[in-house]
């Protein structure tokens, strides 16, 4: 499964678990506006580490701050290479 599909899948599952209503996810969706709060986002990053085996946040020299879904996917795409 492509990284993007897996990321979107995890976001949707975490939102459901956390009973959050999220907007339709596109590359341009701003993460902090999507209906996800910091706890949701923290869980998503933890699940992605488990499923993809990478944590680009801890590996990077400078901590990245992705703003949109597209930024997030790009971060993991790079990390998975």
């Amino acid at each position: 499964m492509a990284v993007k599909t897996r990321i979107l899948d995890i976001i949707t599952r975490v939102a459901a678990e956390q009973e959050r209503r999220i907007s339709k996810l596109t590359d341009e969706t701003v993460l902090t506006d999507s209906g996800l709060d910091s706890l949701c986002f923290a869980i998503i990053v933890a699940r992605l580490e488990d499923e993809l085996g990478v944590d680009p946040f801890s590996q990077a020299e400078e901590i990245p701050f992705p703003r949109t879904v597209g930024d997030l996917v790009a971060l993991y795409d790079r990390g998975a290479e």
């Binding site: 701003v30 993460l31 902090t32 506006d33 910091s38 986002f41 701050f65 992705p66 703003r67």
Partner: peptide, 12 residues
Amino acid sequence: PSHWRRLLMSPF
């Protein structure tokens, strides 16, 4: 620090 991380991740 968590509040600030959230703000830095936003366009705001």
